[in-house]
């Protein structure tokens, strides 16, 4: 009987101390973690909307998007965070859009698990640079092996066609969602 009581006491004691300790550490760390997350989002928003000075999250739209304003508080466009399937897993990206949604300002890949050295080239500048000032209407297209000839085309990376295509598809889907929101008047 004594043995059982001792067992229960020790386990309870360890549990209480560990819970208390973790609650304290969590209380200390939480503000930092939230600040880190916010700083990260903010930095990526302003990288894809370099002219922007402030932003405002669009709520209740089912995905993540921000309205971007310049120093005179004029609406200069949007930042859209969207994700979809790539070659090996999820690709999550953020892109800056002009206020009429017809032009991409810049693109950044936030998360991906593509093949190292091949698919991961979608995060590098030769690929992402192509999206600067790219036209999005009617939709973005990709070409393979030749220089893009139209203002809405990009060139897929050799050896990573599927990853490149995935990025284009994710963008097209996301922009389509934005267009629908705009048509329903929810963007104002």
């Amino acid at each position: 009987m004594n043995k059982v009581i001792q067992m229960l006491m020790v386990l309870t004691g360890i549990g209480i101390i560990s819970g208390g300790l973790l609650a304290t550490v969590d209380g200390w760390a939480d503000p930092f973690i939230i600040a880190n997350k916010k700083a990260e989002t903010e930095a990526s928003i302003f990288r894809v909307q370099p002219e922007g000075k402030s932003y405002e999250a669009l709520n209740n739209i089912g995905f993540e998007a921000y309205k971007i304003k310049n120093e005179n508080s004029d609406n200069i466009g949007y930042a859209l965070v969207y994700e979809g399937n790539g070659f090996q897993g999820k690709i999550r990206l953020i892109c800056g859009l002009s206020s009429d949604l017809n032009k991409i300002i810049a693109l950044e890949i936030l998360e991906q698990v593509e093949t190292p050295g091949l698919g991961t080239k979608i995060t590098e500048s030769p690929f992402t640079e192509q999206f600067k000032q790219l036209e999005t209407s009617p939709s973005i297209n990709w070409v393979k092996g030749v220089e893009p000839s139209k203002p809405n085309e990009i060139q897929a990376i050799t050896g990573a066609t599927i990853s490149s295509k995935a990025v284009v598809n994710i963008l097209n889907q996301g922009i389509e969602q934005m267009r629908q929101l705009r048509a329903s008047g929810a963007l104002q």
Binding site: L21, W28, N36
Partner: peptide, 13 residues
Amino acid sequence: ATFVTIVDLVMKA
């Protein structure tokens, strides 16, 4: 597990 969580939180922060 307690020490691991502490490390995890500190690293995240």
